[in-house]
């Protein structure tokens, strides 16, 4: 699955109505993202290259964070319903990913919710999405995931094959800001 076309979406007209896009992207469950991710809070700023691959057919997922020279910082792998997390060369098995990632790395990375948020979709039933008045694409999303307040902002929408997907997101929670720039969506 390679990136077919990748052209910016014009920001003055709608190509899809909200419901048909939501329905369409919720069926997009096999994709690969290559990009960069940053974690910025008042004490620390860290960035890493991001490679995130999800394959619905064989129910596998892998998320890899590495340094500029390709040194692995963290890798998460899913086989069926089992997640393994590799940090500093040690492997951990878990059902509760978010707390294990936080415990090991101090990073607040809600990967289950982000699976939906990345596409501008609600994860929890009461997540709220605000749509751009002209393009009708998700502009921001608020959530009470993990009883915290999350604000996600979307920008740089591109046509990726038949989909309209954002190539830049910021996820804010308390004084933490997670910034994601997607260099390529492969579907």
């Amino acid at each position: 699955c390679s990136s077919i076309n990748d052209i910016p979406v014009e920001n003055n007209q709608a190509n899809q109505d909200i419901n048909s896009r939501n329905k369409q992207v919720s069926q997009l469950n096999s994709w690969t993202i290559a990009g960069k991710i940053a974690f910025i809070n008042s004490q620390k700023r860290q960035s890493a290259t991001l490679h995130w691959q999800k394959n619905a057919a064989d129910k596998t997922e892998s998320l890899n964070l590495s340094t500029l020279f390709g040194i692995k910082v963290l890798e998460l792998n899913q086989q069926q319903d089992n997640f393994t997390l590799e940090v500093d060369g040690n492997d951990y098995n878990t059902q509760d990913l978010d707390s294990l990632i936080f415990e090991l790395t101090g990073l607040n990375l809600p990967t289950r919710a982000m699976n939906h948020w990345l596409k501008g979709l609600a994860f929890l039933p009461d997540d709220q999405v605000v749509y751009h008045v002209k393009t009708l694409l998700p502009e921001s999303l608020t959530s009470h995931y993990n009883n915290e307040n999350w604000l996600i902002k979307y920008s740089k929408y591109h046509h990726i094959g038949p989909y309209q997907l954002a190539k830049q997101l910021t996820i804010r929670q308390g004084d933490l800001s997670i910034k994601i720039v997607i260099h390529s969506w492969k579907i």
Binding site: S66, F69, G70, I71, K72, E75, E86, G89
Partner: peptide
Amino acid sequence: NILDATGQLS
């Protein structure tokens, strides 16, 4: 080429 401890290669 840089090989990291986990087998990742740059």
